[in-house]
Simulated scan of single mutants.
Amino acid sequence: MPVTFDTATIAGTALWAIAFYLGCSPLADRTITTFEGWLGAGSPAASLLSIVPFLLVGGLAYYGLTISLGGSWAVSLGVISAIGCGVYELGRRDGQASE
């Protein structure tokens, strides 16, 4: 079965990657720090490369949901997850700021 990269696949993978990136922001920060150690402090490439693991996990989540529920559900759940993780991240940062 060949893998096709249509707009729904790209959108679904990106939405799930954003959800995982926001939902696991301490892990994302450690990933950026690791890449900065390899590439140099303050490197913009470190920030760009730090999203790659989340894109891979997001692609797997999208692919698994597409197989089990269908493509439209995978994108819809990606939107819901991205919004939910964004709200969670805002609350987490607000809680850290008030401590």
Rank of each mutant, 00 (worst) to 15 (best):
V57E: 04
W16D: 11
W73M: 13
D6R: 12
V87P: 03
I80R: 13
V57C: 08
A28H: 05
A19G: 06
A61F: 08
G84C: 10
F5G: 01
Y88I: 01
Y63D: 01
L60F: 06
F54G: 03
V52P: 04
V79Q: 03
V87S: 05
A97V: 08
P2W: 07
G42E: 02
V87R: 02
G84M: 08
S72E: 12
A17F: 10
L15R: 01
G71Q: 14
G71A: 14
I10Y: 05
T9N: 07
T13H: 05
P26G: 02
I67A: 13
Q96E: 11
R93C: 09
C85Q: 12
G12K: 03
I67C: 09
S72G: 02
C24R: 04
A97Q: 13
P26I: 00
S98W: 06
A74L: 08
V3Y: 14
S43M: 04
P2M: 06
T34L: 15
A82D: 07
E89G: 01
A45F: 13
F54P: 00
L27Q: 02
T31I: 05
S76Q: 12
V79M: 14
Y21C: 00
R93A: 03
A41L: 02
G37A: 01
T13A: 12
W16T: 05
I80E: 09
Y88L: 14
D94P: 01
G59V: 05
I83S: 04
Y21N: 06
T13K: 03
G59N: 13
L65F: 07
A28D: 10
G95E: 14
W38N: 07
T34A: 14
T9K: 09
D94W: 02
E89A: 11
L22I: 01
T33D: 02
A17D: 11
L56P: 03
I10Q: 12
F5C: 06
P44C: 14
E36F: 04
G91Y: 08
T66E: 13
A41V: 02
